[in-house]
Nucleic acid binder design. Structure first.
Length: 925
RNA sequence: GGGCCCAUAGCUCAGCGGCAGAGCGCCGCCUUUGCAAGGCGGAGGCCCUGGGUUCAAAUCCCAGUGGGUCCA
């Protein structure tokens, strides 16, 4: 493997008396001032050296350390940037959560397409790493939520000019290491104890040399020099087995763990006690965890010892527990008893912080995406709280963290948590009942609850296997949870084929040589006519693809359908049925060829387009109104406009009421009546983000350095669609309905302009029609409908009663029926020509009188009911089977009451004539 | 985005091709000084909607609607 050895030979190391050494334990190469050093400094090669012996001159709280860091870099020429949301999917669609500060600048800034908001910059970015969820609380140093402090510099090679959004070199490796070293020195660290380990970094298609900064056994920072990209012909072969080559841009990507720096300054047994001491005190007090001095000492010693071990996940913790107990001279069970409640409390504090970040940034619990992640965390936290015996509502615990983090939407956060806890409680209730039932069933049979049931309970009903165990044990049922339970669940899901059918409609290769089409529809959104030159025409199976130098036709995008219309040359008029954007080229699909090089006059179908414009502006207004009525967390999950209606999918944590819908409709129409201008603005994206935040990306993330903003009322969104000039041009907005398309997402369907009038008229027509049928005024329809429904039910019951009466009257009168003697029992064979209910009632009545009943009807095909009183050896099913076969059908049922029939009603009489014979045969059988 | 599960009395559910059921709740009567409770009787169902299969569908199939849940 070609290493990046020479990459680490920094002048800074040279000038400051560093030595490059090799760790005697793990073989890692590292740089240090201490020539006599033997090991790299990182556990397990070394142990923590700062517990009870802080590594910095002073103690810092989390906030103090953050401020110290940011102001240090500010003083050294960096611009301080506000943190981004933890919901990274709000500005990029390849990840769900922000996991590192560099996520804020990927992919557009790191690739050089967009300039960074400042260069160089410093930031403290909240991050969430779900993959650490199992470690939290147990390892003493893992947290799911953390802040990554960082300074970034974006460089471009000197020999490339103008190709990238930033130019030249700001600084690179030497300066980066120097900053780190200086910061440590300023905080009073003993620089002789600091090691810089060479550890090349690879990730996400990029790579570069990197340095881990270790001090007193703790990894405080990673300095990454992102400078390479995947390239099968590249000169560097890196640790992931792939080849890489140098890029034109190179980026300083550092990561300083705020929590770890704070911990280092305090020297507490675990990181958790350093970063949220108040919350931990509160939780301990509330859960009533009080230890004697001796117990407290055991816990602290255990924490120190586990920190010294190479613990990177929970499995290691359990394995290490025994060793730690041995070393402390206590029983392993006693140790677990003492430590576990604390581990759970640490986890609760961390999870609450995670929830505060996620909910504070407007993530709404749901069964998809980030919403699902927040739901998982919340449920896990709730379980922990219950297990450890914390007696405080979860929303209050989350609020403690939200308060500390300075969120302003704390009421909404609490509301969401309460709603979600309630949902979880319902799920648990449902699950508990289900498990109880299963447990009783299997306990009765003396069998354990099978794994298949456990998987079903978890996968379809959300019940954890340990919950099942708990409930089952109360009902004396056994449960055997296999070790590989979760992989069994995964197996059940199999491979999901997310093969996206790409519409091979347009081949981008055809258009790459053509110049960008000038987009006239942005210049004047109200003009529908234009002139243009045909640059090229491609013949297709079902028409022609026409490329012009400029166009007024809006290509499908942002949920707005393509314009229709015509392109006319001197002797040809082509109907345009579709318009698409391929890169910067706009392609018109038409039914005729106006001829390459020709002048054409374009005419957009203005009625269609105007409806799209109205619906597009209406979409912004409905979203804006919904945000005001339902809360600031409301975000768009998707939208689609068409000619006669439009819809917007909004993220919301509970279902909307009819009242809320009315309020939204009223407010949206108020915006329309205000008749304020709808303005478009082209603006630098960083500027837009700084001014309006990431909420402008409701409809997706646009490309490019310049983005287009649409201002409507007090709403601002990045949007590429066409809009009316004033809100009044929308005409009116009629919300047609709402539906929950998935958990946490509500779809609003509405109509604007002409379509609103039409939709209202249709609803009105339906009501008027109903009123006419009922022969009442529209106002009386609900009441009348209710009365009719009630009367209809009453009559149904009355009919049933009458049928019964009729049946017993018939049976009693024994008219019409032919009586046959069957060894002392009388059988009555009767034809009724009535429906099945009546046949059954009659047969029942005959049986009451001690008769065997054979009743038939030719009312609808041929039907039979045969009923037999107790103690008579005739199988009704056999009789019906035989009778039914004679009318071309079948039948059956229990021995005392059977029914059947067939399509041939004309054969009924003959079949009934044979009935006595059949009865006798069956009796003798 | 995908998978799986569920929908029957006011509530919780059973029934899984052949007469619509249980427990709790509700109403009436009885027992009791009263309460807790017990006994007897009763009311209460578009078996989610729409198609299909079948002599026959709550039950099987398809589609839809509503809810739940797991995974990316």
């Amino acid at each position: 493997m070609s290493d990046l050895e020479e990459e680490y030979e920094l002048a800074y190391f040279e000038d400051n008396g560093f030595h490059r050494l090799e760790c005697s334990e793990c073989g890692a190469r590292f740089w240090t001032r201490d020539e006599t050093r033997d090991t790299c400094g990182e556990p397990p090669c070394d142990t923590y050296g700062f517990i009870d012996d802080p590594g910095f001159a002073e103690e810092y709280t989390l906030a103090e350390m953050r401020e110290a860091y940011l102001s240090f870099f500010e003083e050294h020429g960096h611009t301080r940037i506000d943190p981004y949301p933890v919901a990274a999917n709000r500005w990029r669609d390849d990840v769900l959560l922000t996991q590192a500060s560099i996520y804020d600048f990927q992919p557009l800034v790191t690739s050089g397409e967009t300039p960074p908001p400042a260069n160089p910059l410093t930031i403290s970015q909240p991050c969430i790493r779900m993959q650490d969820i199992d470690n939290v609380g147990k390892t003493g140093r893992h947290t799911m939520a953390f802040e990554m402090m960082a300074h970034h510099a974006f460089n471009a090679r000197e020999d490339v000019e103008g190709e990238y959004a930033y130019e030249g070199e700001v600084y690179w490796k030497d300066q980066t290491v120097e900053y780190c070293d200086t910061l440590l020195e300023e905080l009073g660290a003993d620089l002789d104890e600091v090691t810089y380990i060479e550890d090349p970094w690879v990730g996400g298609g990029n790579a570069g040399p990197a340095i881990e900064v270790i001090y007193k056994g703790l990894e405080l920072a990673t300095l990454v020099f992102m400078s390479m990209e995947r390239d099968d012909d590249g000169e560097y072969l890196l640790k992931d087995g792939n080849r890489y080559s140098k890029m034109d841009t190179y980026v300083v990507d550092t990561g300083y763990g705020l929590e770890r720096w704070t911990w280092m300054s305090q020297g507490t047994p675990t990181v958790y006690e350093a970063i949220y001491p108040e919350m931990i005190d509160f939780l301990r007090g509330n859960a009533g965890i009080e230890y004697t001095d001796e117990e407290e000492r055991i816990v602290q010693d255990a924490a120190r010892l586990s920190g010294n071990l190479d613990i990177d996940d929970v499995d290691d913790v359990e394995a290490a527990r025994g060793d730690i107990a041995d070393e402390l001279g206590v029983d392993v069970d006693r140790l677990r008893e003492l430590v576990e409640p604390l581990e759970q409390i640490y986890a609760i504090a961390d999870h609450c912080r995670t929830l505060a970040y996620m909910l504070g940034d407007g993530i709404v619990p749901s069964n998809v995406g980030t919403g699902y992640l927040v739901r998982m965390v919340l449920r896990r936290t709730k379980r922990l709280v219950d297990t450890v015996g914390v007696d405080a509502p979860l929303d209050e615990l989350v609020d403690m963290q939200a308060d500390r983090l300075g969120y302003e939407n704390r009421d909404t956060i609490r509301d969401v948590v309460r709603t979600e806890v309630e949902k979880y409680r319902e799920t648990l209730d449902r699950g508990t009942r289900r498990v109880e039932q299963l447990a009783e069933e299997y306990a009765r049979e003396g069998e354990p609850i099978p794994t298949e049931e456990l998987i079903e309970l978890y996968d379809s009903h959300g019940i954890q296997p340990d919950t099942v165990e708990e409930i089952a044990s109360e009902h004396e049922a056994d449960v055997d949870v296999p070790d590989d339970f979760y992989s069994l669940v995964a197996e059940r899901h199999g491979q999901e084929d997310d093969e996206e059918a790409d519409d091979g409609e347009f081949d981008p290769a055809d258009f790459t040589d053509l110049p960008a089409t000038e987009r006239l529809y942005y210049e004047d959104q109200n003009r529908m006519e234009f002139e243009a030159v045909v640059l090229d025409v491609f013949e297709r199976e079902d028409g022609y693809d026409i490329v012009l130098d400029q166009t007024m036709f809006y290509p499908e995008g942002g949920g707005q359908p393509a314009d229709h219309g015509t392109l006319s040359a001197d002797d040809v008029t082509a109907d345009v049925s579709d318009v698409q954007r391929v890169g910067d080229v706009i392609v018109h699909r038409a039914d005729a060829d106006p001829g390459k090089g020709e002048f054409v006059r374009g005419q957009v179908d203005s009625r269609r387009r105007r409806q799209h414009m109205r619906h597009h502006t209406a979409t912004h207004l409905v979203g804006h109104a919904a945000r005001q009525i339902l809360g600031d967390h409301i975000r768009q999950a998707g939208a689609q406009k068409s000619t006669d209606s439009a819809r917007i999918d909004l993220k919301h944590y509970e279902s909307v009421t009819r009242e809320q819908v009315k309020e939204i409709e009223r407010l949206a129409n108020e915006f329309v009546m205000e008749n304020v201008p709808v303005e478009q603005e082209w603006i630098d994206r960083n500027e837009a983000e700084a001014e309006y935040g990431f909420d402008i990306y409701q409809g997706g993330i646009p490309e490019g350095e310049q983005i287009r903003l649409i201002h409507a009322e007090s709403d601002t969104q990045a949007c590429g669609g066409t809009h009316v000039s004033r809100t009044g041009d929308v005409g009116s907005i009629k919300i047609l309905g709402t539906e929950r398309i998935q958990d946490g997402v509500i779809r609003f369907t509405y109509a604007a302009g002409d379509a609103a009038v039409e939709a209202t008229q249709q609803t009105e027509d339906a009501l008027l029609d109903a009123a006419e049928i009922l022969d009442v005024t529209p106002q009386d329809v609900p009441e009348t409908a209710e009365r009719f429904f009630r009367e209809w039910k009453e009559r149904g019951k009355r009919i049933d009663e009458l049928k019964e009466e009729l049946a017993s009257a018939r049976a009693g009168g024994s008219g019409g029926g032919e009586e046959v003697d069957l060894d002392g029992t009388t059988a009555v064979v009767q034809r009724l020509d009535a429906d099945m209910d009546e046949l059954r009632a009659t047969a029942n009545a005959l049986v009451e009188d001690g008769n065997v009943a054979v009743v038939g009807s030719a009312a609808d095909g041929a039907q039979f009911v045969v009923a037999v009183p107790d103690g008579v050896a005739v199988d009704a099913g056999d009789v019906v089977g035989e009778l039914a076969s004679r009318v071309g059908g079948g039948g059956g049922g229990p021995p005392d009451f059977a029914q059947g029939g067939g399509p041939n009603g004309e054969d009924l009489e003959a079949a009934l004539d044979d009935a006595p014979e059949i009865l006798k045969q069956v009796l003798n059988a």
